[in-house]
Amino acid sequence: MSSDPGELERQPDRPTYDLPRVTSVETRRTQFAPRRRNFKTALPDVDTAVEFLVVTDGAIPARALGPVLVVGESILTEVAAADDTHYRFVALEPQTLEPGAPISLGWSGRPVTESIPTGFRFEPPESAPEEN
């Protein structure tokens, strides 16, 4: 019987974790007071948090790691998605945000150097705190 030498199967495409392009960033002051049903959160209640409203040109991939917004030296890990292209990052220590600091988008736990510059810079919001 003849033998088939076989052919190595190409590894299927891995999931892509490429981040979308950020098309706009707006900031506003907000209150941050997360509530849990069964326990008290480890996150602080903050009356003067700053929220970054980020709009992208596509969805951020769903994966174990989460998107982070890098604002100068600050890394914002808390984020909620309004829909596929609208994200609300919140800075719980706004005093660490440096006006004019460059803003980039990255992944939690990955080196800041891997984050993608958005072209936007941090502008402190003028508006009064809003209810979260």
Binding site: P34, T41, A62, L65, G66, E78, V79, S108
Partner: peptide
């Protein structure tokens, strides 16, 4: 809780939901 939301809050939400199932 799945999608692009993330952070400690998202993890706590998950713990909260598991506790709901335990209850």
């Amino acid at each position: 809780l799945n999608g692009a939301g993330s952070g400690v809050g998202n993890i706590e939400d998950r713990a909260d939901l598991i506790i709901d199932s335990i209850r």
